[in-house]
């Protein structure tokens, strides 16, 4: 590339950046003031969530009831992405079996420090328990299937930190983890389709709503949170295992 072409690009880039800046300023000027967003829409949704669905977490109401179909799509985008790169990595490694392999050439096998082991021993169950708590209380308090699911998977990952790769895959074997993930994915669709059998529309909230504030309330919002929690926690553990396999010998 000649010097003049490089300069031309730089000038074009600068002009575009200034134009983008100006447009952004105009757009920001049209927004409500910082911290003020009391639109009629969110007021209505907030009332609807508690009165019509017995859910005290507005986000859960919007994600799993009002636009539950969108969340189904989001869950499957995540699962398809996990499945896709798992396949690609396994293919590239020429993987035949799931048996644990020694570390890759040039990588030392370091025994975890006793302090880290002790930390992991306490952290793994506590984090997994907290994750289940967040999933189960999805319709009541902030968080839900996604946040709790990632917390569960993070707790599982701490088993690798404290116990090493072999222990990690022994405590969280592939088949049950993938089964958990699959059950979560299927459960979501099954519950949505179940509403059709009950005479409603797809993803309609047909389960008993219970009372706002109870552990089991808000009908399908609670159940869908559980299924998403299963799918996300299983999916993230699969993601972690697949990435950690990359640090092991390939055959």
């Amino acid at each position: 590339m000649s010097a003049s072409a490089g300069n031309g690009r730089r000038i074009a880039g600068a002009v575009l950046a200034v134009a983008l800046c100006a447009l952004a300023c105009v757009a920001f000027a049209g927004l409500p003031h910082f911290g003020e967003s009391r639109g009629p829409y969110e007021q209505r949704r907030a009332i609807e969530a508690v009165r019509a669905r017995q859910a005290t977490n507005l986000d859960a109401f919007v994600n799993f009831d009002y636009r539950g179909f969108d969340t189904l799509g989001e869950e499957y985008i995540f699962l398809v992405a996990i499945g896709g790169f798992s396949l690609l990595l396994a293919e590239r490694r020429g993987e035949i079996s799931d048996a644990p392999r020694p570390p890759a050439d040039g990588r030392a096998s370091v025994a975890p420090d006793p302090v880290i082991r002790a930390f992991a021993l306490a952290f793994v169950p506590a984090c997994i328990l907290y994750g289940f708590y967040v999933v189960l209380h999805g319709q009541l308090t902030p968080g839900g299937g996604f946040q709790g699911g990632v917390a569960i998977a993070t707790g599982a990952l701490a088993a690798w930190l404290g116990g090493g790769y072999r222990r990690f895959v022994r405590v969280f074997p592939k088949t049950p983890v993938e089964g958990f993930e699959t059950l979560g994915a299927l459960g979501y669709v099954a519950l949505g389709a179940g509403a059709l059998l009950a005479g409603g529309t797809f993803m309609q909230n047909v389960l008993p709503l219970g009372k706002a504030g109870a552990l089991f309330s808000a009908g399908t919002i609670d159940a869908l949170n559980g299924f998403v929690g299963m799918a996300i926690s299983g999916g993230f553990v699969v993601l972690f295992v697949e990435f950690l396999k990359e640090t092991r010998a390939s055959r």
Partner: peptide
């Protein structure tokens, strides 16, 4: 905030 902690701190 919970999502950010979960994804940003470990994954």
């Amino acid at each position: 905030a919970l999502s950010e902690i979960a994804v940003g701190s470990a994954a």
